[in-house]
Design a protein around this nucleic acid. Structure first.
Lengths: 253, 253
DNA sequence: TAGTGGTCTAGACCACTGA
DNA sequence: CAGTGGTCTAGACCACTAG
């Protein structure tokens, strides 16, 4: 009788814990505040540390918490909205581009990319690496694939690789007429190199945005961008910065 | 010396396992095939079951595996592309709509929704529940919020709730002129009711698509749709069905 | 060096499925 | 009913951070 309620169909402990912690975050903690450590929290709730961690993982997935090894668990700020799809289509590297180039090499692409580009697998492809920063934090890493056949004017550029090469490739891209673009979003996990760039551990959840740029009836470029799923909200549509932040509802009783 | 290689900076076992299993899935298994059970796999790889499960979780997150309690672990088909953003904006419930209505009630909305709708928190809102099916499988559940003030003509409808009511609300919506829409995508975890409708466990990863429909300069409707993140690839742009499926690259050595 | 989160183990029991 | 994945425990050690 002293307990709140008997659960005829008991929900898992970690799920209940998630709800309790979520409400505590709303009412008793403010952004950036540091939580008690995992061993202490587990003891306080009377569960094993693994169970407590399962609840924390959920909350981190939902962007409510941020955990860093050697430091602690902190309350995360609301997700930052990053504009991904715009009404006025534009090539990567255009004036208002939110990305900045990092590197560029010319090599044979992975098989999956060659398929999407509709080119032979041994045909060389310019691969531009770019990164995107928002509010001081890295939010996305991108690999931009451009078939060499799309850019005949670039064969004689002197810079063989590096940032200068990347800029040259992007500059060349602007000369083509962009006819349209198609995008897809799916859930993925960060590969080792992306994870490093995003300041996360390998396997961290990411939103993978694949963009196909169409010119002259063909796929002129393919962008594969991985966004931090914990901190980002991808926005599409006319204006990107509108304040629609959906926080999951309370659990129904 | 018999081992393949000494790892100077050893990656986690579960991550290495994920890679090994991923390659095995590519080469030795076909879609729908059932894997050995977890205890057997763990023994075969010489790890604890929890570690093996960590690897399986990764692969399930990436849409490579499907696990069902009491049944087993099967190889998942490639993710199905579902069109989310279209060039020609249209109201929910239009002729070519992929959704079908389930239910409708009129009640005060959650606080977060009221804020997004820019209405008072105690103002009544029509809440339409819809579901979306693709290739025989439920892929998304939606809550569609429409302020009663947007639809003055609906006060006298006789059906108080249920599917008939939902259809009536959607029909009424078509009479307004749609001026634009804004969308956002973020990662979330399925609430209990959504999870049930999506045939998943609570907490399963979902892609939450928030759409704001604008008419007469105001927010006339707000849709919060949760898509199964494991099985869905959300497509935006001119044509939704194009075959760009990005499979994560092999891990660099 | 002390304290944090990340990984891993070897068990146990439960909830669910299908024969 | 037997077999599956899902939950949970109580430990251990490791990698990383910061004072």
């Amino acid at each position: 009788m002293g307990t709140t309620q008997l659960e005829s169909v008991p929900e898992p402990k970690y799920w209940h814990l998630r709800t309790v912690l979520s409400e505590a975050l709303d009412s008793e903690f403010s952004v950036g505040e540091i939580l008690p450590n995992e061993r202490e929290l587990a003891a306080r709730f009377g569960v094993a540390r693994a169970t407590l961690r399962q609840a924390l993982e959920q909350l981190e997935l939902e962007g409510r918490l941020q955990r860093r090894r050697g430091v602690g668990t902190t309350v995360a700020p609301p997700r930052v909205g990053v504009a991904v799809g715009t009404e006025q289509h534009a090539w990567p590297g255009a004036a208002d581009d939110a990305w900045h180039p990092v590197d560029c090499v010319q090599a044979a692409p992975p098989a999956a990319v060659a398929d999407a580009l509709e080119t032979d697998r041994d045909q060389p492809v310019h691969t531009v690496r770019r990164s995107r920063v928002s509010q001081g934090q890295p939010v996305a890493a991108e690999l931009l694939y451009i078939p060499a056949s799309s850019m005949p004017g670039l064969t004689a550029i002197d810079a063989p690789s590096g940032t200068a090469r990347a800029r040259a490739v992007l500059r060349e891209l602007q000369h083509l007429e962009l006819e349209g673009q198609e995008q897809a979003v799916e859930l993925g996990s960060a590969r080792a190199d992306d994870a490093k760039e995003l300041d996360r551990l390998p396997g961290a959840p990411v939103l993978v945005v694949t963009t196909r740029f169409i010119a002259e009836g063909r796929t002129a470029a393919l962008s594969v961008a991985t966004y931090r799923a914990d901190t980002c909200r991808l926005t599409f549509g006319d204006s990107g910065g509108v304040e629609i932040h959906h926080r999951p509802e309370r659990q129904a009783s």
